[in-house]
Nucleic acid binder design. Structure first.
Lengths: 151, 151
DNA sequence: CGCAATTTAATTGTATGCAATTGATTAGGC
DNA sequence: GCCTAATCAATTGCATACAATTAAATTGCG
């Protein structure tokens, strides 16, 4: 009885992680020309989406939503403040917190950003249904990976 | 007739790219303790996998397989050379190329690396079949995104 | 109340990533 | 064969990421 040859798990082409990793980079490259028009990097765009959804939140909340820590966010937010997209102010209620709020310029950028998702969808050459299904599978995987970290 | 409310494409939770992006980071965190034992970072582990599959390749080939350019690879490979995992030598046939070859230490590391994929599989809490299916969908998406860049 | 433990940002140091440029080498057209 | 164009790695500059530490503020427990 011939057995199927075992697939070498150390081959690059067999690794789910590399598939995720290289797809993330491909997305970054596709986003770049679209975000250049807005003057944003991709992580900055993520911060803007958090703020467009809910304005005036502490750094910690942004970090939890994006899975980033203050070591990444502090300098990133300072650059966004220098670009006059956001304001950083110490909370008066809890002076440990720094609240991030959109400037009028930051709010206005939302309108210019509306075309971005369409551009991405076009480049993906996928149906919305396929993308939604893949997105949900990925989020489930991500949450299982993060859950495994806490053990 | 009530219409289904349009899903806002600017919401973080609706974006396939953020799902990919945050899953990539989750993988990095899961890999970290496993790769620390090998003295590798995740990108360095990717380079090792390329070399374990085919030794003595030019920097360009590694870059094409990993979608990384010399700006990333040159310093990364220098660190790996300092760690005595690889050697960097100018090709005599084409002196523009630098060939990357494993040292005995780099070759030996492959044995220690065999346990890594199992650890990842365990943390993913998924079946191999699910992961393979997701991997193939991601690679197809990645290739379509990269194809869209060339237009 | 008093003080130790916790929380929150900021800081420091190391390692990617990538755009743009440079320098050396090779290939190709005529 | 010559000279321009293309190729390849290295370099420079900027922007993430993250571990580890620090500093300030708050919580909570006795």
């Amino acid at each position: 009885m011939a057995r199927k040859p075992a697939v070498d798990p150390l081959l690059l082409g067999n690794q789910i992680c590399f598939a995720v990793y290289s797809t993330a980079h491909a997305f970054t490259r596709v986003y770049k020309p679209l975000l250049d028009k807005l003057g944003l990097t991709y992580p900055q765009y993520l911060v803007m989406m958090v703020l467009w959804e809910r304005d005036g939140v502490p750094v910690k909340d942004i970090g939890e939503k994006l899975f980033l820590d203050s070591g990444t966010l502090t300098p990133l937010l300072k650059r966004m403040e220098a670009a006059e997209l956001i304001r950083r102010t110490r909370s008066t209620e809890d002076e440990r917190q720094v609240l991030i709020a959109l400037t009028p310029k930051g709010q206005a950028l939302r309108e210019k950003a509306r075309v971005v998702p369409q551009g991405i969808l076009a480049s993906s050459a996928c149906s919305v249904g396929e993308l939604v299904a893949m997105k949900n599978e990925l989020l489930a995987l991500r949450d299982k990976l993060n859950a495994a970290l806490g053990e």
